[in-house]
């Protein structure tokens, strides 16, 4: 057994969570409707994307066994990217 890797149960739970979050994104993104989402649902979508990315990094890419520096680096990348996209989206509503 390779102790550093997540167990099969953990991987399965991570996958189930990712599926539930994707269904959540479909709901927040009002997939079946051609209507504007507004800032609340758009923010929810980006938060869900951030959560899903975090799960992939943490369990599939196994960053939980890496150093705090790497974990902070990847988290900073995601926060900077999604924060920038959200800021531009809000700017679109204001302008």
């Amino acid at each position: 057994m390779h102790a550093a890797l997540p167990s099969r149960r953990t991987l399965t739970l991570a996958w189930l969570t990712l599926m539930v979050l994707t269904v959540g994104a479909m709901g927040a993104g009002k997939v079946g409707m051609d209507i504007s989402l507004g800032p609340v649902w758009s923010t929810a979508l980006l938060l869900i994307a951030g959560l899903k990315s975090g799960l992939i990094l943490w369990f599939y890419l196994n960053l939980r066994r890496s150093t705090p520096g790497w974990r902070k680096g990847f988290a900073a990348f995601l926060i900077a990217l999604l924060g920038f996209i959200l800021a531009v989206y809000v700017l679109t509503l204001v302008l």
């Binding site: 994104a25 927040a28 993104g29 997939v31 504007s36 989402l37 758009s42 979508l45 980006l46 869900i48 994307a49 899903k52 990315s53 992939i56 990094l57 890419l61 990217l81 999604l82 996209i85 989206y89």
Partner: peptide, 14 residues
């Protein structure tokens, strides 16, 4: 991971 970021931005956020 990249697709997880592409999907909401290109397909959903509006």
């Amino acid at each position: 991971l990249v697709w997880v970021l592409i999907f909401p931005l290109i397909y959903l956020v509006r």
